[in-house]
Design a protein around this nucleic acid. Structure first.
Length: 329
DNA sequence: AATGCGTGGAC
DNA sequence: TGTCCAAGCAT
């Protein structure tokens, strides 16, 4: 890409700058590494709209990485509940503790990359945005922008092309400019090529088929699965458990119940919920049970929102309470 | 290297 | 409605 195109991209970024709680305006001192890291981990496969209130809440409750490192795990999981991909929260705690023990974030991409939950993208993003290192984080936005710019069908060449585009200085602004362009102009569907500062350089635009790049992912079938959750209620309390650290909803608070299965279940239900995960859909049947089982705790029903239930179980509890009310009426 | 891992908004 | 997809990482 010509230096001219790079400067048009950066100018477009400045002109359309979107203030977000975790970033500083172009030209101002970079944000704290803690803020950059926390936001980047939250933003992994998650929208800005979903992240923004969570980021504010985390920062309010744990203003420094030392504070986060000292937090009980259950408190962090509770604040993460509903945000999804819960391995991120487990890695967040491990990373915070490692960094606190080191006395602060390492400033290089290579050292950041070794920390839990920090992969190729996040290490480059933190290095560029917080430390001004000349790295280009390649996320799906950058992948799409670069693939279209060069009409690439093979995405493996994207990182090299992306690095070749990077102008001298301002690596953090460049990274965010590329991502903002992908999110706002160079969108997956119906890209706004007439408004794009790179249109004159774009091979896919010249071909008239920007949406053909990069090659769309093949669609996968979503199996249907089935499960039971037990509703164990006594004196305004409900029995909750913590799920195993690995696997679905790992480490999260939950209603107790047997493992989910591939065949429909029959039971004396008070409520049902259906929930769609990435790789399967779940029909969950909620069944009243008298006695608590296994390890767990009694959660006051009027403080259920403080339990940190992931969305599946939050909705299951809502459905159960509605079902019990209907039953009593 | 292919797969498992959440959720909600846009269309 | 269903389908796509989001500032990916770990294994």
């Amino acid at each position: 890409m010509s230096a001219n195109a790079a400067s048009r991209l950066l100018q477009h970024y400045v002109d359309n700058f979107r203030r977000l709680p975790w970033r500083s305006p172009p030209g101002s001192p970079p944000p704290e590494p803690y803020r950059v890291w926390l936001s980047e981990v939250m933003l992994q496969q998650t929208t800005v709209a979903a992240v923004t209130p969570r980021f504010e809440r985390f920062l309010e409750r744990w203003p420094t990485i030392e504070a986060l490192a000292a937090a009980p795990e259950a408190d962090v999981m509770q604040e993460w509940a509903g945000l999804g991909y819960y391995a991120r929260a487990r890695n967040l705690i491990a990373c915070a503790r490692a960094v606190a023990a080191m006395g602060g974030f390492p400033a290089s991409e290579a050292e950041l990359r070794k920390l839990p939950g920090i992969g190729a993208y996040t290490s480059a993003a933190v290095a560029a945005i917080a430390f001004g290192e000349a790295e280009v984080p390649v996320d799906t936005n950058v992948e799409r922008v670069v693939a279209r710019l060069h009409a690439l069908t093979d995405k493996s060449a994207v990182p090299a092309f992306a690095k070749a585009m990077m102008p001298e200085g301002r690596p953090g602004d460049f990274a965010q400019a590329m991502m903002d362009l992908g999110a706002s102009i160079c969108r997956p569907r119906a890209p706004l090529c007439t408004q794009c500062p790179l249109a004159a350089d774009c091979r896919a635009f010249a071909l008239g088929t920007p949406e053909a790049f990069p090659t769309p992912k093949p669609k996968t079938i979503r199996p249907q699965r089935y499960g039971i959750a037990w509703w164990i209620e006594r004196d305004g309390l409900v029995w909750l458990v913590r799920r195993p650290a690995k696997g679905m909803l790992g480490g999260m608070a939950a209603l107790p119940g047997p493992d989910w299965q591939d065949e429909p279940v029959t039971a004396n239900a008070i409520a049902w919920v259906t929930h769609v995960f990435t790789h399967f859909a779940l029909d969950l049947t909620i069944v009243p049970v008298a006695e608590p089982c296994g390890e767990g705790w009694w959660q006051p029903i009027d403080r259920l929102s403080e339990a940190g239930l992931p969305t599946l179980y939050r909705r299951a509890a809502e459905a159960a309470l509605a079902g019990m009310t209907a039953l009593a009426a």
